[in-house]
């Protein structure tokens, strides 16, 4: 009986925490993600231009040759940020993550400069050529 009150109190706290635990995690802040992506952009551009990384067919960055640990960490961070933003945009557009990735892949292929590594839908890597005038 001595412990009945603390146990009941603990039980009440646990029950009270259930809805919080069951709720969806909060959406990431798109402004913060964009700021970080902007900060990482020069280094990513440099790696892309050097042909060391490319854009795969899921709208993520992928190594095309051996990278340093620092470079690997940069790509990992960028891809995590991209995933978070794709998930957020899918939720906003009321569509699937795959649909967002597919549309972004198309956009990346269109916007990428010539000479960059891209991956086609059949997983084949190619370097973008100049658009015919």
């Amino acid at each position: 009986m001595k412990f009945a009150r603390p146990i009941l109190l603990l039980l009440a706290l646990c029950l009270g925490a259930l809805p919080v635990l069951a709720a969806d995690p909060p959406d990431p802040n798109p402004d913060q993600l964009k700021e970080r992506m902007k900060a990482n952009l020069p280094a990513i551009d440099k790696l892309k231009k050097a042909g060391r990384i490319g854009e795969n067919n899921k709208a993520y960055l992928e190594a095309r040759e051996e990278l340093t640990e620092k470079e690997k960490a940069l790509i990992k961070t960028e891809n995590e940020d991209r995933k978070a933003i794709y998930q957020l945009l899918a939720k906003r557009a009321k569509t699937s993550l795959e649909a967002i990735q597919k549309a972004r892949t198309k956009q990346i292929r269109e916007r990428s400069a010539a000479g960059l590594w891209l991956q086609d839908d059949k997983d084949h890597w190619y370097k973008k050529t100049e658009d015919p005038a």
């Binding site: 964009k34 902007k38 933003i85 557009a93 569509t95 956009q107 916007r111 990428s112």
Partner: peptide, 21 residues
């Protein structure tokens, strides 16, 4: 909707990139 959401977020970044047009 997808195109609008992608444009809203990525056009800034892609414009700033030296390897995107």
């Amino acid at each position: 909707r997808i195109a609008r959401e992608l444009d809203d977020f990525f056009t800034d970044l892609d414009t700033e990139s030296k390897v995107m047009e």
